[in-house]
Design a protein around this nucleic acid. Sequence first.
DNA 1: CTCGGTGTTTTGAGTTATTCAAAACAACTC
DNA 2: GAGTTGTTTTGAATAACTCAAAACACCGAG
Lengths: 146, 146
Amino acid sequence: MTSSIPAVRDEASARLRAAGLKVTEPRLAVLDAFTPGEHLGADEVFRRVSRSLPTTSPQAIYGVLGALSGAGLLRRIEPAGSPALYESRIGDNHHHLVCSSCGKVTDVDCVVGEPPCLAPSATNGFVLHTAEVTFWGLCPECQPAG
Amino acid sequence: MTSSIPAVRDEASARLRAAGLKVTEPRLAVLDAFTPGEHLGADEVFRRVSRSLPTTSPQAIYGVLGALSGAGLLRRIEPAGSPALYESRIGDNHHHLVCSSCGKVTDVDCVVGEPPCLAPSATNGFVLHTAEVTFWGLCPECQPAG
DNA sequence: CTCGGTGTTTTGAGTTATTCAAAACAACTC
DNA sequence: GAGTTGTTTTGAATAACTCAAAACACCGAG
């Protein structure tokens, strides 16, 4: 019952409506499944949503996640070798740190200095809209193991 | 027969040996399939290798690509929404520009200024080894269409 | 408050990219 | 030239999605 108090549901409903999406139980439940800083795969979202909405199907989760990330209410990332992950931190174009051993993902704010990573040395005629930065390394837990 | 002249095969053999890998026809054929600047998926590599080595199986291609990228003779990238791609440009940690419409990939040298993207604002206890930058945009061909 | 249209979700099946395992085979070593 | 070990073949299985049709529910109009 962490965040199922009416206020957050109302707020979530308003955000869905503002995005032009209908307000439905599965969508509210998916939004509710995310805690700040978490990066969840479709399977984990399904698991969590199932607790409050046992009749939900995995396909519904895929649909909801697609709709929410399409509407900008969720951000989708896809680190190499991992299934797609979703997070609730949106709006800023923050970066990610991924553990190459266990796959753990954490957020990092934009790199030092300006947002330099938005300017490649040559655009080859492309019109850019996003720069995505992923840092790879070993998380504290995986460091002893190498 | 573009690059099947003995010299390049000898060079490729030497690189395989230096990496501690046995020299085999499928491996030479895979290395030979890459032209500088190309980013090929396993299916395309299989198609090309099949021309000179018709008995090769797709699974062999997966095995070879895994061995070669593991040994650092090929670099593997995995843009979101795309199957894994491989390229022969290695050693420098260059970046990529991906067309969000057609998926076309081109190389870009490191961003303006220093290699700033190697320093996130906080490492959260991670020990970093790579920074991966992907720029998303529309390639010249896809720009009219939006 | 009820009805209807349209957007969602369910149900069920199919696809793509990839991995696993065992047996046949081929490089390199001695 | 024979053996050992790493590769490739053959065959099957898996994970993560996507597609399509039918059942359903949200919400604006009346």
